[in-house]
Design a protein around this nucleic acid. Structure first.
Lengths: 221, 221, 221, 221
DNA sequence: CATGAATGAGGTTTCATTCAT
DNA sequence: TATGAATGAAACCTCATTCAT
């Protein structure tokens, strides 16, 4: 659900180093990093990006601002870290699903894709929602391009194993699939993602995408 | 494309009066309001929400900050105004499309809906993209609930005219339709919305939604 | 006394815009700018560069930090403004002295130069001392190069009007003159520059420089 | 070149203990102290005082900050140590030169003084330049008064051995000599102190000071 | 009504220094 | 002793908003 926005062309902010500043070598460090991470999600969920300040994150993490800056060179780096980890998570999940769908019929492909995407999102619902805001706040597209590209590549490759697929249409179809997955999943999560809705969501997506991919990549024209 | 996010459950900022401070009664006033409006879009597009300051907007609009605050009680009110106007625009367009689709077959319903939604978005592509950031920035949901509800109502009513539709499923289906429309359209706009893509987008949506609504509201289970 | 250090080669800091941010258009502004200027000198004299903070300057000037930043984009710009004005002052004074010494004998040249340099420094003793620290703090050489070059050029040109001067030695001699003037004048100012000392200073410099220039630019070797 | 500023009247910072915390008794300690010392000079030269942090110095010295603070109670103590050592070096060199000039003619006195001063500065050019900034940063005058006084005393004593010297003028003349030496030498070092310039510098100073001392301490008036 | 100077709370970030391991 | 994680005061700077002119 985030993936769809990452090829956006929005205004960029000046780029700074986003690399974590320090590798935790002592025992204590690891805990601190985790605490900050956790705190960020909570603050994001409770106050929104606009009200997330480094001070507040540090406070909630139970450390001082100084400590915060020992691990992240700046606020954006924090967001970057969270986003990256999350995207990596989704990406991997999707990748596996795609891999095992090679050569399978369309319905199975879509089913696997939907399952992996929706489930990985739902599993990290808090982070997903928290991050959602971040993505737009910093139109950080270029920085995450690689993760998106990777997911696109996975799907593209999978679709290519469909016999008789119209290759030139695959990229567009991939984009449609991702944006549909994204849009609908986000909506469900905002409604609280109760199990029955998740089930309906998957069924709905299955109908849509199966029909779509089937027709779009098929045949004549 | 914005509609889908408006039932979000995100953190609220302190609510202030969002009513424009002064009704444009004189000729000049109208011009000023428009100038500010226009300037906001431009600044949004050029610098992003994060770098939008009231001073900058005023400058670009060719007036002083003081004047700005004569027309908007605060920054949020400005965003509110822009969002509202935009949503109103989409809403009306969709409403008309739904109205004239009453009693028509599914494919025609979807076709009309897609046309109206996509076209009204594309027509205001700049504003759409500019606003996108704002929507997340202020999780202004509650304030726009009425506009979203209205669109949902329009679609729901329309779907109700389908003979034999499973009424209890209509709300969910409506939500799916809207989020799909939203997700895909946004994606296309971020890619620049070249005409051929817009055409493909409409075709794609038609396939998906026609198949989806047809199956989802139909029959047995 | 400051001039001598401006061709230094010390570490540079990242360059930011040093241009004043706003031209005072209202009456009030002018006063504010002056107040800030005055306050800076005082803070510099009382607390030293190290303890000069924008807040402190603003406070002493009787304005808020915000106001400060309306006129100077950053702290360095403040220093730049003060330095530039001061150097301009000395530069002009020296320039006039050099101009009227063209074609005159060495003793008169030196006498005019010493008078103009020392007097203009003494007249602004507070600023001179205050600025002294600033110059070293920011090794801002490159930015002021033009003023130094200008003074060097003035002296060089003047020396060139000496009949039979060994032209190739003039640049070095100029540098020696400036650094001697600088070193000694600074010392006297730090001792409080009581009138009798200023007199002795001038006499001493006259002896040194007259002898030096006479021998260094003359004759055989 | 630093000496000239040490009778300055600049603002003081809160005085802390500047004594090294621990005498290097073990072999290891000595190495550590040296490493820190060396590192400081390098950082000073590379980044300037403003960017010198205790952490950075420790890093470059290959030790931890903690270790740093085992040897220096605070940052200022570090600067103090470096300055003191450097001044001691110059002071001793000048002292010897003065001692052996007792009773000699003016030209020899100046020649010895210039040689010793300039050479000892040049020999430690890096340190000299590095320290330069520090001197102004901390207007640490009072703390070094003794070293300066000592040099002044050495010169004064030497000048007193001049037959027929006007004793009451000696202190002022001493100050002029020192500030001239300082100003000119600094200038040359900032230009890189290439050998030929150093030679010219010495010649120039010889001319100036010989003429100056000769006339200033001589005769009638 | 318009102007734009002034405000100041609040955000980000740095760095000297301490102290548990 | 050495380490380096943690601290937090304090610096810089921004920007929404007010109000005298």
């Amino acid at each position: 659900m985030i993936l769809q926005f990452l090829n956006s062309h929005m205004p960029k902010t000046i780029t700074k180093s986003l690399k974590p500043r320090k590798k935790p070598v002592q025992e204590r460090s690891g805990q601190t990093v985790d605490a900050i991470f956790e705190a960020t999600i909570q603050v994001l969920l409770k106050d929104g990006v606009k009200n997330l300040t480094t001070t507040r994150v540090a406070e909630r993490a139970g450390v001082s601002v100084g400590t915060f800056y020992q691990y992240y060179p700046n606020k954006e780096a924090l967001f970057f870290a969270i986003l990256e980890r999350h995207l990596e998570f989704i990406g991997t999940s999707v990748q596996i699903a795609c891999a095992k769908s090679h050569g399978r019929p369309v319905d199975e492909m879509m089913s696997n894709l939907i399952e992996s995407y929706v489930d990985s999102k739902i599993k990290k619902r808090d982070i997903s929602l928290a991050i959602w805001e971040v993505v737009t706040e910093f139109s950080c597209t270029p920085k995450y391009a690689h993760v998106v590209k990777r997911v696109e590549a996975d799907i593209t490759t999978m679709l290519n194993t469909l016999p008789g697929a119209r290759v030139e249409k695959i990229p567009f179809v991939t984009a449609m699939i991702l944006s549909t997955l994204g849009g609908a999943t986000k909506m469900i999560m905002e409604k609280g993602a109760p199990p029955h809705m998740v089930k309906d969501l998957k069924t709905s997506l299955q109908i849509m995408l199966e029909a779509y991919v089937g027709k779009a990549l098929n045949g004549s024209e």
